[in-house]
Design a protein around this nucleic acid. Structure first.
Lengths: 207, 207
DNA sequence: GTTTGTGAATAGTTTCACAGCA
DNA sequence: TGCTGTGAAACTATTCACAAAC
């Protein structure tokens, strides 16, 4: 099933598989079957096989998937092998937590710059970067920064998104619960924490 | 199209609609058409109409949806009208940010308790709650707490999830990148921040 | 024996087009 | 005229079953 449009859902699961593979590799394993990987990650084995099949032959029948090459392949597909740099805008409670967040490094991400409006924060050092004045945010392209993380209050979200696009950002991770308009070439992924919590009660048993 | 199984994707969008409706209502509007609500939220009008149609007649042809009753209805469907209480486990960087997070209140949530393992944090006050000893986490049912938020390091996630289930929690919002096993009656929603960032480069233009 | 890769079948979701109502 | 509600069509994704590979 090669030469196909890759389903979005498959792309969404690739980081899940990648993390599972890295986890097992660190434990010293060489290979893993779709069944065991599925058990570890809470998905179905045929889902894993189908997903991988879109990209070519990843595995060996009778054996499974070789972890090291699996990791290399997924990293390449997701373009994580280049070591992506991100800029954080908004160093409030959430922003500060993101600067200290250990999870980004695992995928080769680095928060290489941080900006805020608050004069008291500008110039301060947090998690290895000096907080800059948001008014001076430009030309991130030259510094090799292609990703933007927005962690500002709701009402300034669109403004910040515009600034990031002008500065040459190509992808945005948005923690604000507002819909933002950007050129089609820029990909936005929104994480709305409260919204995810909000659909939990719907699924909970009544008593 | 009444008396139907509600698609998961529809449930996922209900909080989006709810927020949009609240936003417009606060601006003094009475009613909104599916078209205008769609423009505000970045979805398609027919999607909104289809989603609402699963629950009965929400709107008025020629006019649109009455905001106040729309808000009331969605709140009821999502069971947010009861005012849900949550317990936070793990008061590190992310946990602290969540305690200070203003977004939960909008949906009627309250973080009514917080727990940690760190002896230095126990007893301290953060965002209106006193941090308790995680070893003493039990009987949340009596305090009317049904939701759990997990913001602990990866390797203790399953352990914490088990504790929460034992304490009577019915829904879990999990910020840890591990798959957790819980009884089928307990609903888990996982927010994996690094993972969402990890699929961003795939969608970004190459040069 | 075990496990992959994949066409075909099934399930789920989005989009359309338009009848019917205010 | 403007807008909702909805069956039907189109599209997308998941699940199955099994031939082929190790």
């Amino acid at each position: 099933m090669r030469y196909h449009k890759i389903p979005d859902e498959t792309v969404r699961r690739l980081p899940v598989y990648l993390r599972g593979a890295m986890h097992l590799s660190q434990q010293g394993l060489e290979s893993i079957s779709s069944r065991h990987l599925a058990d570890l990650l809470g998905v179905k084995p045929w889902q894993i096989r189908k997903d991988f099949s879109y990209f070519g032959d990843f595995g060996t029948p009778g054996v499974g998937y070789h972890l090291e090459s699996l990791i290399k392949q997924i990293n390449k597909i997701l373009r994580l092998d280049a070591g992506q740099k991100a800029v954080l805008v908004g160093v409030g409670n959430l922003g500060s937590a993101l600067l200290a967040f250990p999870g980004f490094g695992m995928y080769g991400f680095e928060i290489a710059a941080a900006f805020d409006v608050d004069k008291r924060k500008i110039g301060r050092r947090r998690g290895g970067v000096v907080i800059g004045d948001i008014a001076k945010l430009r030309n991130l392209r030259r510094r090799g920064i292609c990703l933007g993380i927005i962690a500002v209050p709701e009402d300034t979200t669109q403004e910040v998104a515009d600034t990031l696009v002008d500065a040459g950002i190509k992808g945005i991770l948005n923690f604000s619960p507002r819909y933002i308009t950007v050129p089609k070439r820029v990909k936005v992924i929104t994480i709305d924490i409260a919204m995810d919590l909000a659909r939990l009660p719907y699924y909970m048993p009544l008593s």
